[in-house]
């Protein structure tokens, strides 16, 4: 299984649409996309075609959260299915995102 990332830029908003599996075998694919996140105001992860995410994949999303703080852009998750939502909720990913950006206020 693999991960295909589609990049869509609309003004200062960048969308990364993830298709397939984000796990230990594919997480390195997302890294270059995260490195080029300069001069944007908003990043959207579109998970609507994501089939599976493991802890390494969650680590990649965590990196994007910390990057959003460092590079001062907003981050949003779209198309999160019930299973992924449960995983994000359990590990505390939503809470981390909220806390990281609360510090900006």
């Amino acid at each position: 299984m693999e991960l295909i990332i589609q990049r869509i830029q609309t003004g200062s908003t960048k969308t990364l649409k993830l298709k397939g599996i984000l796990d230990i075998s594919t997480s390195s694919i997302i890294e270059p996309y995260l490195e080029e996140l300069d001069s944007i105001e908003r990043l959207i992860f579109d998970f609507s075609e994501l089939e599976f995410i493991d802890s390494t994949g969650i680590g990649s999303i965590m990196n994007a959260i910390y990057l959003s703080k460092e590079k001062n852009f907003k981050l949003a998750f779209h198309g999160v299915d019930e299973m992924t939502h449960q995983v994000f909720e359990t590990v505390g990913l939503y809470h981390i995102l909220e806390e990281i950006h609360k510090e900006d206020i």
Binding site: V91, G92, H95, I96, E99, I100
Partner: peptide, 9 residues
């Protein structure tokens, strides 16, 4: 009982 991963915050 809520609590985030260790190493998150």
């Amino acid at each position: 009982v809520k609590g985030i991963m260790v190493g998150g915050l």
